[in-house]
Write a protein that binds this DNA or RNA. Sequence first.
DNA 1: GTGGTCTAGACCACC
DNA 2: GTGGTCTAGACCACA
Lengths: 119, 119, 119, 119
Amino acid sequence: MEFHSQQAIFLQIANLLTDGILEKKWAAEERIPSVREMATSIEVNPNTVMRAYTFLQDQEIILNKRGIGFFVATDATVRVIELKRQEFITQEIPRLARTLKLLNLSLEDVRKLINQTEG
Amino acid sequence: MEFHSQQAIFLQIANLLTDGILEKKWAAEERIPSVREMATSIEVNPNTVMRAYTFLQDQEIILNKRGIGFFVATDATVRVIELKRQEFITQEIPRLARTLKLLNLSLEDVRKLINQTEG
Amino acid sequence: MEFHSQQAIFLQIANLLTDGILEKKWAAEERIPSVREMATSIEVNPNTVMRAYTFLQDQEIILNKRGIGFFVATDATVRVIELKRQEFITQEIPRLARTLKLLNLSLEDVRKLINQTEG
Amino acid sequence: MEFHSQQAIFLQIANLLTDGILEKKWAAEERIPSVREMATSIEVNPNTVMRAYTFLQDQEIILNKRGIGFFVATDATVRVIELKRQEFITQEIPRLARTLKLLNLSLEDVRKLINQTEG
DNA sequence: GTGGTCTAGACCACC
DNA sequence: GTGGTCTAGACCACA
């Protein structure tokens, strides 16, 4: 597993999980890989995985059953979407608006750039 | 002056300057505030301001005349635009594409969100 | 059955039993539910129930008749009260004293809070 | 510095700080000892201190200025009192009420026990 | 100097 | 087996 260095690894792991939840890779109330399993599978220290899990647990996206493991919260999808949406609106949108203005680009230009990137 | 903790302060200062250049707050070849002036006015360690200036100097957006001060480069505007454009294409666009997909949003939704933010 | 995660589940089960004994839910020398019965009824691993039973057996609050089951000890009530009293004096009282001092509350305030909770 | 083993050390450190704030040991907006200073003074690993600080930062009781240190939040006292008060009401009071009932003790008995402990 | 992150490895209570 | 905590030590970006 490859990580980029711009963002803390534990946050990248957290995103891995939230994205997986949105993509229904893990259903609600389903058990996710144990800290140790995840750590070996992505070749990272268990402490780092633990930090990602704790981070998500604080946001009630996953929860822990003592001695059994971590589970996707019942309303995890809703929470994740709400969280990402908030981040998008408060951080991405203002930055985007500002950049478009500064660079004098239209949303049509953005559409083209996105297509180029994906193509 | 308030800084958010998500990004290095020296980068926030650099943005302050590049935005000012695009907004013609400082014209080409004009002198910008000295490191010390800037440091006291925004209440930041002079080393941090120096780092921002050096960062912009490396990209030839500002240049230093020894013993006199820092000046906006002749073609600063062009360079800034190019810099921001590169950042936009390599970082903003991929992130935007991914978020739109995950949250199932269209560019039309983005247009509305931008208008809401500005309105 | 819901457990909070702040305390070990086996201790929560033990409290369930001691409270039941004080409330005369099970009389002295009466048989309490088997480990398996208890485990299925409260949806917990049998090992965990066993640990709670062993814990109480060590304090001679319940006792085991091989092949028959666990029984409330003859003087269980006395022992439970003594146990809880000890815990109360050594743990609850010091914590209470400290909190009252920090929050600048009187015992009269405590009386009101208790009444509110119950009312 | 002595810690008891019933509670995680990082939580005991956090309490050390919140108690210190209530006792005006550190005023609002004042800098608290750096992670390393605290670590050496109480003879604990810096990571453990870091965890306590992060824990308090999450609750906006202390805040961090990049490269400078941690500072007591402006409204830290209010937050701490509210936090402790909530804990007291939701956790201590119900437990106390239950224990008093089970042990058939009055608040007058509690008063005596507190005095004995302190005396 | 400051915090922030990560690794490696250990020990523990608990299920 | 599970998570939870702690230590030791390292490296990094930043002020």
